[in-house]
Write a protein that binds this DNA or RNA. Structure first.
Lengths: 290, 290
DNA sequence: TCATATTTGTAATGTATGATACATCTCGTG
DNA sequence: CACGAGATGTATCATACATTACAAATATGA
C-alpha cells in the first residue's frame, strides 16, 4: 500500500467521528460494500450515498489522495494484495532469512503458481485422464522434451511399477518413431511440453493423433501448440523469479496422477509392487529401510 | 449475476480454447489478478496484457457486454456478491472438486511439506551450497539414484548451461566409477538420495569423501546414511497421501539453487546462454516462441 | 507462392467522467 | 435574530477514457 500499512477501510473507520454529516453518509456507503462501491464511477458512488460529487472528491482528498482515480488505484491494489494472500501470507518461509531472500521469493512464486494452476483445472478432466491411464487395455506412452523429459521419466518410473504396458519415449531422440511403431487407436499418450516448445514433440503428437490415440497434454500457461491435438490438456503456471521456468507445478500434477492411478489399480498394483520388492531384495540394490 | 450464474472468470476460462493469441494474453492478464485488473481503466488493462485497447473491447463484447463500463459493472457486482457470502471461500484448491478430492488432499500435503521443510533450512547453509556450486574453480558432480536421478538430471541440465565443468553421474549405473576417475579435492558432489536409500550411492559418497570432495546432500526427513559424510545437508519432507513419496520439495530446492547460482554467475552465464540460443536457432530444434 | 480472410494495432473522435468555481444552505455564536 | 464560517450542492469545464474507423500484420488455404 502506497500511503500506509492501513487499508482505506481502516482509515475511514478510524476517522468516522471527525466527519461531517454528508461525509459520514458517504463513509458508510463506501464501507457498506467495500471495496466494490468505491471502484465504480465517482458519480455512482455519490448517488449511492446521496451526496454530491464534490463531496466525494473532498473526502477522497481528505484521505490523502490527489484525486478519485488515485483513490481507486489504491483500492485495486488492496484487492490485488488480498487475493494473493490466502496462503502466501507466510511472508517468510525460512526463519532467519530476510523476506527478500531467494528462498522466500521463489517459494512465494511457486505457491502462487500452484494456486493459480489448480484453480484452472477441471476435476472431471483430471479424473478422466487418470481413468485413461489406469485402463490396462490401453498402452501408455510417456513423452517429454529436452528438459521436460526428466519429469516425464519420473512419471514413467512410477507408472511402470503400477501397471504393464508403459513406454517411455524421448522426443529429442531421433529414434522416437521406432518406439511408436506399435501404437494403436485408443492408446494413451502423455505429453509434457513446456515452453521452448519443440518441433519434434509437435510432429510426434501429430503422428499419434493421426493414429487415433488419446493425447493427455501437460503444458504451461501459454499452452504448447500440441494442445489443439490433445484430448485432455492441463496447463500449469511456471513463472518464477529466475532466468528459468519452474517444473514444480507439472511435477505436482504428475505425482497426483500417480497417486490417483495407483488407487484405481490398487488390487493389481499390489502384486506388482510385492514382486518388485522381491527382485530388489534379491539384487540387493537397496539397503533395508531402517 | 445479471447475465448468468457463471462468473466472468468462469466464462473466460471455459472459452480459453477458442481465443486468439492476443485475446489469450488478455484473458490471462485478467485472470492473473482477478478481478482487480479488470476494474481499472481499459488502457491500463491493455498495457498490462500487452495488447491494444480495441482488443480489450472486442473481448469484452465477445463476452456479451455492450461495452467496457458494463463489463466493469458486472465485475463489481460479483465482488459485492462475494463479499456478502463469506461462505464461498476457497477452502479447496480446485473449485468444483470436493475437499476430499485427491487434488485437494495431495496439494494440502505438498504445501505442508514445503512449509515444514523450509522452516528447517538454514539460509546460510543454502547460500554456502550455492556459492560452492557457483565456484567455477571446482568441478560439480551431480548424482541421483533410481528415482531421484530424474531431479538430479533436472539440476544437471540447467547447471550445464550455467557453467562449465558439470558432470552427471547415475549411481544406479555400474559405470559410475569411470565418471569419478578425475574427481579431486575441493570438487563438489551434489547427491540426491531419498528413501529406499541405495547402496551404490553410499559407496559413491564414501569414495568421493575419501578424495576430499565437498558433498552437498539432498535427502528426505529421515536422512540418507550419506548425511554423515556430507558437508551440507538439506532434508525435505516428502510424505503425501499416496503409496509413493513426493519429489516436489526436493525439486523446489533444486530450482531455487539453480536460480541462486545463476544469479551469482550471471555475467558469465549470459554469454553461455546466448551461445546456446544461437546453436538452437541453427539446429532449429525449437520453434520460435510466439 | 500468392490471394483472401482474420486478427491486431494505430490514430482520430465523441462522450462520460472527474475536477473546478461559485452559489446556497446550515449551524454555531454574539 | 443576525452574522459569518464551514459544509454542501449546482453548473460548468477540461480531459481522460472508451469507442470507432481504418490500416497493417498475420494466418489460412488454394
Amino acid at each position: 500500500m502506497a500511503h500506509s500499512d492501513l487499508t482505506i477501510a481502516d482509515r475511514i473507520q478510524s476517522g468516522l467521528d471527525t466527519l461531517t454529516r454528508a461525509e459520514r453518509q458517504l463513509a458508510h456507503a463506501i464501507l457498506e460494500n467495500y471495496p466494490a462501491s468505491g471502484l465504480g464511477p465517482l458519480s455512482a458512488l455519490a448517488k449511492d450515498a446521496q451526496v454530491s460529487g464534490p463531496t466525494v472528491l473532498r473526502m477522497v482528498q481528505k484521505l490523502g489522495f490527489s484525486g478519485y482515480p488515485e483513490f481507486q488505484a489504491e483500492l485495486r491494489e488492496e484487492l490485488r494484495a488480498k487475493a494473493k494472500n490466502p496462503i502466501a501470507k507466510h511472508d517468510t518461509w525460512t526463519e532467519g532469512a530476510p523476506s527478500g531472500h531467494v528462498l522466500n521469493r521463489f517459494t512465494d512464486a511457486v505457491i502462487d503458481n500452484i494456486r493459480h494452476s489448480l484453480a484452472q483445472i477441471e476435476p472431471d478432466a483430471f479424473d478422466e485422464a487418470c481413468a485413461l491411464m489406469a485402463d490396462t487395455g490401453r498402452a501408455v506412452y510417456i513423452v517429454g522434451g529436452r528438459i521436460s523429459h526428466t519429469i516425464a521419466e519420473y512419471l514413467y518410473l512410477h507408472m511402470q511399477v503400477i501397471r504393464p504396458g508403459v513406454i517411455h519415449v524421448q522426443s529429442t531422440s531421433n529414434t522416437w518413431p521406432h518406439h511408436l511403431l506399435d501404437i494403436k487407436e485408443g492408446d494413451v499418450v502423455v505429453i509434457c511440453d513446456v515452453r521452448r516448445y519443440e518441433n519434434n514433440t509437435l510432429k510426434l503428437a501429430e503422428m499419434v493423433h493421426a493414429r487415433g490415440s488419446k493425447i493427455i497434454l501437460l503444458t504451461d500457461q501459454w499452452r504448447s501448440p500440441v494442445h489443439s491435438l490433445s484430448d485432455i490438456c492441463f496447463s500449469s503456471r511456471i513463472v518464477v523469479p529466475s532466468a528459468w521456468d519452474s517444473a514444480v507445478m507439472p511435477l505436482l500434477l504428475i505425482e497426483t496422477m500417480i497417486s490417483a492411478v495407483q488407487d484405481l489399480l490398487w488390487a493389481d498394483t499390489r502384486d506388482r509392487m510385492e514382486a518388485l520388492e522381491d527382485m530388489f531384495d534379491q539384487t540387493k540394490l537397496f539397503r533395508k529401510f531402517t
